[in-house]
Design a protein around this nucleic acid. Sequence first.
RNA 1: GGCGCGGUACCCAAGUGGCUUAAGGGAUCGGUUUGCAAAACCGCCAUGCGCCGGUUCGAAUCCGGCCCGCGCCUCCA
Length: 464
Amino acid sequence: MRDSKTGNFKIYNTLTRKKEAFESIRTGLVGMYVCGVTPYSEAHLGHARCYVVFDTLRRYLEFLGYEVTYVQNITDIDDKIIAKSMETGDTPSDIASRYFSSFMGEMEKLNVKPADIYPRVTENIDKIISFIKALIKKGSAYEISGSVYFRVSSLDGYGDFSGRGEGEKVIGEESKGLRAKKDPRDFALWKQDPEYGWDSPWGQGRPGWHIECSAMSKDILGDFFDIHGGGLDLLFPHHENEIAQSTALTGRVPARYWVHNGMVTLRGDKMAKSTGNLFLLNEALKEVSPGALRIFLLSSSYRQSLDYDPEALKGTEKAFRRLVELKEELIRAGKFYEQGFCDWNDPLVEALSDDLNTARTLGRIFTAAGPLLEKIYGKTHTEDDAALARRIIFVTEEVLGIELNTPSAGMDNSGIEELISRREKLRNQRRFGEADVIRDKLLEKGIEIKDTPSGPRWRKVSPG
RNA sequence: GGCGCGGUACCCAAGUGGCUUAAGGGAUCGGUUUGCAAAACCGCCAUGCGCCGGUUCGAAUCCGGCCCGCGCCUCCA
């Protein structure tokens, strides 16, 4: 499995703050853990970007020949979910499953491959409790009146990961009502909660935020796995604390590569549920096709901030359709008969080996696709052209995950075809007024007619 | 205040020393085509890369200073 093609991938590692050659711990296998959502409201573009980016990383690794185990947790119990539950009267579990299934529906539309495992906090309470017990035993945690805290002073190098200095005092939210915490930097592993809690050696309570990832990633992927991903906003305190807990227990940082995606901003400021400065994913999917949205999200570097601009998003729809067109024309020309394939060092995908440079990859795709389309239209394409088109489609769909849906797929076309041929007859009789009525009627239904030298063609123009 | 990131055409954006007299996408405008449209195609579109200095045969790319924007430091993808 380990061959030359896997050796060229470089990825930026937050742990070392530089691009490093990617090398998996076990030959041919990659364990990847990405921080998932807390399902208490609808997902926005920021979530979409994160999971599209990591889906693309996963697809690229699979393209390189790795077998990837992708784990994404679900924080299905937390303060916000409980707050929502009190507001609506539904149980926290109902809230979490409702928003999680809506999240999954949107991910499916975006052609995000499902994770292999979605561990839930509420189904892993026993593992979390064992983890905490082990930390107490090691002297890295202590209990105060039913809650348990991590003892930051027990660990050297706390703060190194996120670049926070030793002397800096970080006062967590948990500390507010609990002056007894021994160090302001200490954070909760277990929170006393008689109402929404589980039984534990320290009484009724529930897990702190960070411990779930340490406990569940260890359980599924082991003490040391390849990639840990998440949004840049999780760097501190979440990932810093996760590293602290795991390191205190096992003696090592739990993952080799720490990968963070940049934030999505709206009007220059970060998109966030809590501030209401957001653009919902389902709104975006009303504006453009899922494939166009994916192009939008992958058209800049994943580590950079991405500003949501309505015009820029809309613009990707047209670019997306040209690629759809390429696939359609190829099918029409009868040249889509074999599965496309390309090598890791093909100019089309080669840029991905440089820290997943999707923007340059898209540039290469469009550069190559432009001249091809016209050749295929004019039927002047050669076998090499058709092979290139297949490679473009392969990279676009399989590696970048941009599904090039052919509009006719899965639709009832008979009515449309009939209207079009009726229009053709009218046109031949030069009864243009009546012909245009049909054209307008179809356009209202989102069907656009294109009169080409080889006859009329149509396609669906509205997203969805 | 501490730590980090960024400023490239009308907009988005790649490029981090010569392969770029700066990719790609979108918008506008002009043209070809069309019964008219749409679509498609062709053309136009930064002698310039926040500003000022410096290093170099050569800089958007390296160094120094300055200006501006953003993120994290509190829940957050």
